[in-house]
Design a protein around this nucleic acid. Sequence first.
RNA 1: GCGCCCGUAGCUCAGCAGGAUAGAGCAUCGGUUUCCUAAACCGAAGGUCACAGGUUCGAACCCUGUCGGGCGUACCA
Length: 586
Amino acid sequence: MSRSQTDLNLYLAEKIHAALNALSQEKGQEPQTRSITLAPPKDEKLGDLGLACFPFAKGLGTSPVDLCRELAERIPVDEVIERINPTGPFLNIRLSREALARATIEGVLLDRAPFGPFEPNGKKIVIDYSSPNIAKPFHLGHLRSTVIGAALRRLYLHTGHEVHGINHLGDWGAQFGKIIVAWREWGDEAELATNTMRHLFDIYVRYGKESQERPELDEQARVAFQNLETGEDNEERRLWEKLRSISLKAFQGPYGRLGVEFDHVTGESFYEDKMDATIQAIEEKGVATLSEGALVVDLSDEGLPPCILRKSDGTTIYATRDLAALFYRRENYSFDRLLYVVGQEQKLHFRQLKLVLQKLGWPEADQVEHVDFGLILFWDEAEKRWKKGTTRGGNAIFLDEVLDEAVEGVRKIIAEKNPDLPDKEKIAEMVGVSAIVFNDLKNERIKDVKFDWDRMLSFEGETGPYVQYAGARLASILRKAGHGNLEEGLFESNIDYSTLADADKVLLVMQEFGPTLQRALDRNEPSMVTGLMIRLAKSIHSYLREHHVLSAEEPVRSARLALVAAARRLLATGLATLGVASPQEM
RNA sequence: GCGCCCGUAGCUCAGCAGGAUAGAGCAUCGGUUUCCUAAACCGAAGGUCACAGGUUCGAACCCUGUCGGGCGUACCA
């Protein structure tokens, strides 16, 4: 079964492409290279998918209306294309309902691309995401990089890429000097043991406040990091190791709850012994200069501040470690693309890094991309506006608090609406955590997220639970039909797909899966998938209202069950790429 | 100051590389439950797409300028 047999957008695009090329050849023109994007016509009576002919007409020296008519003549009606209908400059196509149902349902249930995994394409993608500063709690600010990166990792995996997901932990650097000093001043072993992250957070915040009146703290912190970077087995190193390992352990909690995985956990400290060689390599290329006591790559040609390789006190900086990581990743992963899922406030830093790579003459410079995202803003009642929250100010919200609130909200709804549900606690966790993840992946990543408890804890409308609920309803129908394993045995009976004409809305949304994955990859934008899942859930909820499955007569009943199984499965697949669970019941 | 990002319904956002009459959710109002989960469904109301020019068959989308908000602007990450 070829891809275009299950992905009808692709099927149509191939037909149109062939017709366009035939026309080009006749007119002695170059073949068309412009990609074909189909969109639903404004009026559904015109067809299911349409192509605007304007851009193609220009190259062929004809009018869009004429081109549209000519294309329609050249694309014969077949078992998939029920009607081809030139409407002025728009080429509208109506799909055969039977073919639509067959291609979609069989494609999904037989796990064919784009619904199932793609054939390996040999491309290697490295994704750097989450990368929190440990020794500070996992707070809301870490959530975005973590869930966006994890979703991209799964999307690239699904579409046949070799993916290396890396957690570039912030476990090195000047900040550790501050944490070491804070620990010396106010650290409490008992607190650290019982209340690890809260305690580290408290002393870090205290450092931020007290260092303003006691500037000697900053000097101590600077020295502490300097001592750490000597590589010697000294007090600083022992403290660093202790604090690092204990906080790393504490981070497994949030990662576990979120279901986030990494292929490599190589933090900044991993490059401790690789930075000298990196600096040396850059110096040998002759692009490093000394400026104000620091070793830098000058970028004034591009009108940017310099990229600092070594600070005037001899210690390294995050740029040094990022460059060492780039050298290491090029050597060890020979990536086709390297994605940094990091907030937009670091845009300048990544521009600088890329420019350094260009100066080094790396061809890979163009394959390094900053996948940036917006901030999390908090409502300031006094100023009546949305503001950035800071860890330093002590107003960070811990991720566990947010997840716990969401789970508690779900518990209440279960108690009210489905008190007999088995495994209540497990389901509450699944649904509550998912709601937070889904919410974060809902909007375009570049948009700032406005943190709003009411909105986050709302489970109605365009939310994670709404989508999960659609899946649970489908699962419930399958369970009652005796399909314990959901789609098992469905193909044993011959399904009469012609009886599913009234399910065209659901099926057409399911057909958007392929093009949506493509767009999500092109733009590194998981929200494309989130949006599709909402539309799919919406179409399912509507369909189930109007069409009864279990009480239908054969052969309609079997066909509807197949539809239900396929919709359920696709929903689960899409949600899984987002990191959202699909409970059987809720 | 300079650079980058954002500005669409009361609120939060979509708008699928420039296409047909700008769409959802929340909130508001009204309707649906002897029916596989009402965390649902159906309907009503709600718009100067920040503003002004420009590009063209066509602009919420591209260009220029203005206004508003945000982020960044060498030894934090």
